[in-house]
Simulated assay, not measured.
Amino acid sequence: MGQVVFDFSGINSIYVAARQNDRQTVVFEVRNGRGIFVFMMFFSEDDESKDQLFLYLARTSRMIERKMYGRHELREPQRNRFQVYLTDQHQQYIREELGLEGSGSTFDFEAFLRTLNAGIPLQLNLADLQANCQAHQDAFRQPELRRVVDDAHKIYLIGPKQLPPEKKPKEKTLRKLYLHVDAEATVLEQFIAALKRQNKTLAWTDKAKLANGNIRQMLNSM
Rank of each mutant, 00 (worst) to 15 (best):
E110F: 06
L116W: 04
Q142W: 03
G104K: 07
L145S: 04
N132S: 10
D108A: 12
N117D: 15
G119P: 04
N125Q: 12
L126Y: 10
C133E: 05
E96Y: 13
L124A: 04
F140I: 01
T115S: 12
I120C: 01
P143F: 02
L116K: 03
L122E: 14
C133A: 07
N117V: 02
V149E: 08
A111V: 10
L145H: 01
T115R: 12
D128C: 08
T106H: 15
Q130R: 10
A139C: 04
R147P: 14
V148N: 06
Q134A: 01
R114M: 15
E96I: 13
R141H: 15
G104F: 07
D138A: 13
R141V: 12
D150K: 09
R95K: 12
H136W: 03
D138K: 12
E144P: 07
A118W: 11
G119I: 00
L122D: 14
N117Q: 15
A127M: 00
I120L: 02
Q134E: 01
L126S: 06
V148A: 09
R141D: 13
V148D: 06
L129M: 02
A152R: 09
A118C: 13
G119M: 00
A131I: 01
N125Y: 10
R141I: 08
S103Y: 06
F112R: 01
P121E: 05
E97N: 12
E144D: 12
L116E: 02
Q137A: 04
D151E: 08
E101N: 06
D128L: 09
T115A: 15
A135T: 10
L98S: 08
S103W: 06
R146H: 09
L145F: 07
G99D: 07
D150L: 09
S105E: 14
G99K: 11
G119T: 00
C133F: 09
A111H: 11
L113K: 14
Q134V: 00
A131F: 03
D138T: 03
P121D: 02
L126D: 15
A152I: 08
V148C: 11
R146V: 05
E144F: 10
V149H: 06
Q134W: 00
Q123I: 14
G119R: 00
D150I: 13
D150W: 08
Q137H: 12
V149K: 06
A127V: 08
L100C: 04
A131E: 02
S105Q: 14
E101G: 10
A131S: 11
L100W: 02
